[in-house]
Design a binder for these strands. Structure first.
Lengths: 142, 142
DNA sequence: GCTATTCCCTACCAAACCGATAGAGTATTG
DNA sequence: CAATACTCTATCGGTTTGGTAGGGAATAGC
């Protein structure tokens, strides 16, 4: 299961992408519209800002907006930022490769072989789907 | 990331499947061979037994063996047993469907649309790969 | 029929993680 | 200059994770 936080992050980004193709929204506005606890959303948006996915304007008529085009933000990037590696095993991760503590021979590991397929399939979806795709996805058949 | 426990469970099952196509092994033997903490493995095997995946023999020359053919135990079944639903969202789970707390319209949820694809792809792998496949998988190209 | 061996079961535990909440600080603008 | 909105750090209760501990019950071999 993905974390609640990742779900919130994606929902907030979709809201920003919908908003006039990248217009500015205030935290409170997103929070209300998407039913996300405000203070929690604050932290999430801050994290997305540090990752150069959104930008912010402080002060009286401030708010958040996408820093890039909706078509240039993938679900994979957001998931990795918030929930960490997409691969179910450290030895299959691109961004955080690590040998499994107890694995003697990585090439012979049957578990790894199977989950490599899972990982490739998952990445194929998440790294190719952008916010722009998401908001028009209703029409496209699976 | 999948849990350590699920990794142990699958490794133990693969060991049992390899063992003479379903021969009996003692906990200690699996534990040593696979470098799995013995008492933890005990709990895992017990759980697999309750799920009718393995069977046990108590007493002096006891041990564990697969209850079914290696070709009749899928990775998906084991993962669901140990780690719970495969779907990353409760509203996409087969075994534990639940509406997302904060979701107003499931059919319109963009997040759901994307992760439905992920789920289908993951299930396609895990529900079609068995222990028998795993131990001969080295030869099959991805 | 005893006893060593093996599985069975329940309880417990420390550390990490999750999903927030609190509150004080810093820009910006009307 | 004050109201408003973002910024940052700390804290917190509850759950999950990855084990460990220890006694009980069955069974095979002598």
């Amino acid at each position: 299961m993905m974390s609640q936080k990742a779900k919130y992050a994606l929902r907030a980004l979709v809201a920003l992408a919908r908003s006039d193709g990248g217009g500015t929204m205030m935290i409170g506005q997103i929070s209300r519209e998407q039913a996300i606890p405000k203070k929690f959303l604050e932290q999430i948006l801050l994290e997305l800002k540090r990752a150069d996915i959104v930008l912010s304007q402080r002060g009286r008529s401030g708010g958040y907006a996408l820093k890039r085009l909706p078509s240039e933000v993938t679900f994979g990037e957001v998931m990795r930022l918030i929930d960490g590696p997409i691969a179910p095993l450290p030895c299959l991760s691109k961004i955080a490769y690590r040998k499994c503590d107890d694995c003697q021979d990585e090439q012979a590991c049957e578990i790894r072989h199977v989950f490599e397929r899972v990982t490739l399939a998952t990445r194929a979806v998440l790294d190719s789907t952008t916010l722009a795709d998401a908001i028009t996805l209703e029409d496209i058949p699976v």
